[in-house]
Design a protein around this nucleic acid. Sequence first.
DNA 1: GCCTCCGGAATTGTGCACAATGTGGCGACT
DNA 2: AGTCGCCACATTGTGCACAATTCCGGAGGC
Lengths: 257, 257
Amino acid sequence: MSEFVVPTPLPQDMTTAPTSKPSRRPAHGRSSAEARIVRSIGEAIADRRLPPGTKLTEESLAEAFGVSRERVRKVLLLLAQRRVVTLVPNRGAFVAKPTPKEAREVFEARRVIERAIMERLQSFPLPLPPEMLDRLREHGALEDEAERAADRKAMIRLSGQFHLLLADFAGNATLAAILADLIDRSGLAIAAFERRSAHTCSAEDHRRLIAVLAGTAPGEAAALMTRHLDSVEAQLDLDPKADLPIDVRAVFAGEPA
Amino acid sequence: MSEFVVPTPLPQDMTTAPTSKPSRRPAHGRSSAEARIVRSIGEAIADRRLPPGTKLTEESLAEAFGVSRERVRKVLLLLAQRRVVTLVPNRGAFVAKPTPKEAREVFEARRVIERAIMERLQSFPLPLPPEMLDRLREHGALEDEAERAADRKAMIRLSGQFHLLLADFAGNATLAAILADLIDRSGLAIAAFERRSAHTCSAEDHRRLIAVLAGTAPGEAAALMTRHLDSVEAQLDLDPKADLPIDVRAVFAGEPA
DNA sequence: GCCTCCGGAATTGTGCACAATGTGGCGACT
DNA sequence: AGTCGCCACATTGTGCACAATTCCGGAGGC
């Protein structure tokens, strides 16, 4: 078809789109501002600075980021699509507060996807590229450091990044994108349901995963990952009683008005 | 779980959101209109009435659905998030046209998820609920009918619904939602890359999957599903040469202006 | 005392008008 | 004749103003 592609991929004709996704294009510098706000809010949610259930008024966000209200509205729509915030008509946006059922589903989805990612990584010809292993070990060092410093926010953020790093190395960007959303949502689940008892986080698990991938420890990476996610989920208090707080009609069933 | 639910779940206080997602609420009748448009466009894309690459001008859609332009804009943003349409800044919206790489990734993601769905279904205590099997067989009959009538659009739509039906029965709504998007995108991939040769579609495969699940045929459902998706993907022409035609900049890289 | 109803304030939703950007065609210049 | 540049048109992007809805407080009645 078209042999030469101008800097901006163009439709061949009125009814044909660019053959490659131009999604990475910063464009007129405005849409990058939106991406920035999405990231910023996403990080604040992951860091628990915005706990589940927090009301996000359009105006306060607009003021905080120095943008117009409609831009915030657009950002909230995007975050709602990713299930990080919940949009209630005429009531506004809230930081999503997953139900125990949803939390369990998210962790199961993660097990499904990350098991496949580990299988794929272990199917690669050995040894794995040194730069890959180095990058993982370097990240592991950061996690250790955060654990020693008891920097909970950093630990959560780094843990998510570790899993995402593995997904990137596995080479399926589509799966990685899906996983990125699930990681955000599992962070919400953890924020909503974690037990009081401070749990020792997963830096040790991650170290073992790296060792197995590197071939310096025996074991099956996929099974190890499954157990890792199991243990994270097990540290939550997903008591079904919390599924819906109180059901007024059921409580007073049989009592005439 | 909960049999009775208060009509509108309300936040407990100013900083607390509804504990259950009120996403099913039709609200003021407007947001349901948006859902309707999203569905309508989605179906048109799945049916190939809107082939990959088609330009979707805001005004024409607004006129077609009898709504304002900004509502269309919102809908396009949602569809873009689902990767069903591609948004190019200042250029508009196009029906997404996946690259061969993305197409392969989507099929791999489907294999990962649907394998897990079949494993989960086969982990259920046997026999599977009759209403489940009946529903599947009923759907299979519709597929046979469409195949006999050579109704290609119906076959595609029914095939997607079949896979989604299995996901629903597996009982993980989160995974089902992810799969729904992937099915839409694989439909786009098929539209973009299918070979000229009319291929015999998958009604037969689906029949065998049902038989295995019902226990009336021996076999492992997960492996069968994997092969099924393999065969669908194998019928595409994912020649990497089409990935990006030619990149002038790369060709002349290093030559000063 | 508690419940209900009602009005004001705050917040979200929507349409419109205008600005910014990209597209295609026409004309001039080499 | 081909190419470059400019200009008019079409389409998308943005901000603003107003409408609709909900929330909160208080007054009134049972």
